[in-house]
Nucleic acid binder design. Structure first.
Lengths: 244, 244
DNA sequence: TTTTTTGAATGGTTTAACCATTATCGTGTA
DNA sequence: TACACGATAATGGTTAAACCATTCAAAAAA
């Protein structure tokens, strides 16, 4: 029935007051909080306690702290970074396997690209084509590092075209985390890279004619194929782990 | 090319060391860290700095701190709570609107229930039926508070049946956040409550015969209808805000 | 045996001082 | 005049030692 009364920790109260000021718009992104030595007086607390509060706000992604004169706590625009970080912890802790993320991607990116097909502006499609050409150049130069990066950008840009921030944040969080792993597990090879490129070519074509269903099927297949290759590669490496 | 060298903050180093120990399994959930006064000596730092590190780890959801003798920092099993909290910040800050979440739910819960239909065990279906009966009782007693709670449990249980922790975490995070709002915006009324119940009856029936497509359509419709009603209600309240 | 009291371990807070970083301003030199 | 360099001060980062508050467990009392 009742929840345990929250224990009285002074820094929590400070956190809440500053957080509420930020969320209510009283403090806008870019605004600078007073110096620690002033804040501590305002809240009638010690500097150590105040700093614990600032640490929490920083971790929540609400403020950013700069050093030196004219430094201090600056209100940040809230973004998906804290979610990215929490997701990374879930993965690293083993609570989430890459299989689970792959299954999630197959289901979700299909939906996202469907929305993207409905909503993409001509400028969006131009941007996708620009990214595509960029990726192609990296492919030709065999610059796999940058190719992967551009691949990630294209995926997150699909999120942007969906014009729904939930999908944008998710797409960013997921790809931010999986690329770290795919890069470890999948030594690049020209065939798969070529496949990837072709998939995007087809997706862009589908976006142009606003064929959400087609785009959806392509990307679901894209993700599934990519993941299966990774699994296969992993299995091989586990069978003969000492092939150096 | 290069990233800015990370600034040397002692407490960050402490955070990383403890975090790595936890993620590597060196410290398992339930394990108790040494007392602050001992840790500060181990890390050769001051208690204030060490406490800032503990504050960050606590915020990340990696540890929990208990008071009193035999208290201290205890390693927590990582869960979706930090993601829930970050999502709540995104919503409260206005970066995310309820419309965006509704659209996300329509797309995603369809996918989740499709997986659930494939994977639900007989025990799962029994549990859903138990929850359904529970909700029905609350309905008959006009206990809207508990009805909403049970409704939320049913939605999150669909995530559990999907057997994919990504969907479980998302379902928990989303519903944890939206119910807070739906409860504010939508005074309960018997008609919609009845509709909700009927939807779940149909979903359970579809789960029984493993008809993922049917279940998917029902829940997508369920979410869409629910959201539209809320929008309409909001619009009415804005037109005549002083109807008390 | 049960209840009450006491003590010690541990997190929470305060204070005061010092260190490290950096923007700004003044001064000297080309 | 214009630029480079160095002093200065503001500000976050760290340290240290002490005290307060909470809690559990052991000792004492009923």
């Amino acid at each position: 029935m009742f929840k345990r009364a929250k224990q009285t920790r002074v820094f929590q109260d400070v956190v809440e007051q500053i957080q509420d000021a930020i969320l209510s718009g009283e403090l806008e992104p870019g605004a600078k909080l007073p110096a620690e030595r002033d804040l501590k007086d305002m809240f009638n607390t010690s500097r150590g306690t105040l700093r614990e509060a600032l640490r929490v706000l920083e971790q929540k992604g609400l403020i950013e702290i700069k050093l030196g004169v004219a430094g201090g706590a600056i209100v940040k625009r809230i973004d998906a970074d804290p979610i990215c970080e929490s997701l990374a912890l879930l993965i690293r802790s083993g609570e989430l396997a890459l299989e689970h993320l792959a299954e999630f991607r197959i289901k979700t990116e299909g939906s996202i690209v469907e929305l993207a097909a409905q909503r993409a502006t001509p400028g969006d499609i131009q941007e996708m084509e620009r990214l595509f050409e960029k990726a192609k150049t990296y492919f030709e130069n065999q610059d796999w590092e940058n190719f992967l990066k551009t691949d990630e950008t294209m995926h997150t840009y699909i999120g942007i075209m969906s014009q729904n921030p939930v999908f944008q944040f998710l797409q960013k969080s997921v790809h931010d985390n999986i690329h770290r792993y795919y890069k470890d597990y999948l030594p690049m090879n020209p065939e798969r890279t070529m496949e990837n490129l072709n998939d995007f070519k087809k997706i862009i074509a589908a976006l142009k004619v606003k064929d959400g269903q087609a785009a959806s099927h392509i990307i679901m297949d894209h993700v599934e194929r990519f993941h299966k290759k990774m699994q296969k590669k992993n299995a091989e490496e586990n069978n003969e782990p000492d092939n150096s």
